[in-house]
Nucleic acid binder design. Structure first.
Lengths: 344, 344
DNA sequence: AAAACGAATGGTAGCGCTATCATGACAGCG
DNA sequence: CGCTGTCATGATAGCGCTACCATTCGTTTT
């Protein structure tokens, strides 16, 4: 029991990884100075910095970021949680985030919820365990466990896509207003029988918000606002398939307001194949402003949302916050633009 | 100097984070037992496991994965490096990877090189610093620093998209063969003046490989294989713009073999707008098998590449390797399918 | 000249977890 | 009965890095 366990020296170093101590030794400085030379270059003398960098180069040192994060409880990881990767909208937001964040030395930890809030909660738990510097998530809705967890988290939280009272920072656009905008346009064009077509609105609830705006406008004008809900995710195919279905159910329909451009373009191309005239026989409108809409004939009337811009702005605000600067506006409205094509 | 620094006790705990020790204390077991209860549930007694899980729940414990990774030098992070997020092809591969990896409890660290191999090297360095469990990268080409770094790394490396002699594991398809396949198809359809149109082939070198296959076939038949290279990335717009350019330069052109479906569909839609008959005036072929190709009229002749499948397969092979199982085949050819539409 | 200060550097002690070995209890066996 | 083996648990010692404080030394201030 009182034996001196002198030979119990445990060898745990599993890999032959070069450590900062070795770099420091070679450079003839202490480990902490080597650490500073790499992380706060202007806190050490020119000569120290130089010899450390030289040692790094010649040993092929790769910093162990896991150890660094544990010691400093800062990770330079940003968690990004999106509901889908099929929908190119989220990918463009990620792209905007990424180009801005990578330039500042942050890395993205990507999670996909498949529109499932419980899955979101699981991902958030995991990501908090990585001491992420910040978290970006699509949307303002979370389950209650997730909400509690995030409310007690002391790092920036950025909720993107939609606009509203968020937990912390928020960059997005007003989907109800977008729905209103398109409904007004369709009304102004003289359409009176307008069908809204969306896919899985319980999950893609932002499309549901656009429908709310749409319905509000039309009902205020004393017009019905029928809704057709598809049970597949939005795609060209789903849009094409929905066209016949909508026309069968609402033969008097003059215009269809689709929840997004994939659906709308699918329907427009299907109409073309079927010899239907757009907008003569049926007008078609979408949402997002995907490039495809500008290449079909007639061009698709849609609402352009600044997706990459949203990602970039969100990233910039996060970076401001992370570098300790005050953030004046916690909420940013990136707006949207009605883009009128020949399809309405 | 010899003063007993009894009061120097340093307080470093910055956050009020719940630690495993607190969980263990509440559960009435040692920290290591608590650790085992969470990581190897069948290595502890039912009662211990139960009380630990109860304590976790009631304290709202979130495991510190950074500390765990440092101690175990395993991270359950998978680095994924792609050249672009605009090109939906890579996104689909990521999607396939993600759905498979997340199900096994791995997280994705995403990096984007913008087709720059030096950027790839930087990303690889950073990711190795996170002790990733494995690395997935698009393509077999790397700069020499990156190659050296990876060659000395003792974790699985998965190179996807193309097929060939890789560093470790490889899942992809033969792009030269794909180019040959389409060239043969066009020849068989009777076209003799065929132009290949690609974008930034020095960066998107896989498109260049397809051109090599294309050229090989045509030259073997004694036909010229003119190349038009665009200096923007592939997009509908670039495809549309290129059509006039190609026809001006090669008035005798009967068919255009585009490097991808974005370009091809853009050209097809532009032809339609300009009243050109496809394939009567000009035949059009693409590569990838994007859904859009099936919705335009005429349907686009293309080569279908199994992108999500590629991601899923890559993920499965990685998981096999990571769970210690032998991997019989280091190389997987996912193949491709010629999809003949009306556009040729 | 003494005191005060700032810049560069280093010693020490962790960050929160897990690998490793040690221990004690109990079962099976000749 | 001792010997070995298995199981559940725990004590200890790190993983590789950085926060925190202390020290040194040259310079400025009073």
């Amino acid at each position: 029991m009182s034996k001196d366990p002198i030979n119990t020296a445990k060898q745990r170093r599993r890999s032959d990884q070069v450590t900062l101590s070795q770099v420091a030794q070679m450079a003839g400085v202490s480990p902490i100075t080597a650490s500073r030379a790499l992380n706060y270059p202007d806190k050490v003398s020119d000569s120290a910095r130089h010899s450390v960098l030289e040692a790094v180069e010649s040993l092929g040192y790769v910093p162990n970021l896991v150890a660094g994060s544990l010691a400093s409880s800062r990770s330079r990881l940003i968690a990004v949680i999106v509901p889908s990767l099929i929908n190119s909208v989220f990918v463009e937001v990620i792209k905007g985030l990424q180009e801005t964040l990578e330039a500042e030395g942050y890395q993205i930890l990507l999670g996909n919820t498949d529109y499932d809030l419980d899955r979101e909660y699981q991902l958030v738990r995991t990501f908090l365990g990585w001491s992420c510097s910040a978290l970006v998530t699509a949307g303002l809705r979370h389950n209650s466990a997730c909400h509690t967890l995030l409310a007690n988290w002391d790092h920036p939280i950025m909720e993107v896509m939609e606009l509203g009272q968020g937990m912390d920072l928020n960059v997005g656009l007003d989907h109800v207003a977008a729905g209103r905008c398109m409904a007004n346009h369709l009304f102004d064009q003289g359409y009176r029988h307008i069908v809204y077509v969306g896919a899985r609105l319980a999950h893609d609830y932002r499309a549901g918000m656009r429908y709310e705006g749409h319905k509000e406008v039309l009902q205020a004008k004393g017009i019905e606002a029928p809704l057709v809900e598809l049970d597949t995710l939005g795609s060209l195919q789903a849009g094409a398939d929905s066209l016949a279905k909508v026309l069968a159910k609402y033969p008097q329909a003059q215009a269809i307001h689709f929840a997004n451009d994939d659906l709308a373009a699918g329907a427009l191309l299907a109409a073309q194949r079927q010899g239907l005239n757009v907008p003569g026989d049926i007008a078609i409108a979408g949402f997002n402003g995907l490039p495809l809409g500008q290449h079909v004939t007639p061009q698709l009337t849609t609402i352009l949302s600044p997706r990459e811009e949203m990602g970039r702005l969100a990233a910039k605000e996060l970076i401001r916050r992370l570098s300790g600067k005050n953030v004046y506006r916690r909420q940013h409205d990136v707006g949207f633009t009605l883009q009128i094509g020949g399809s309405t």
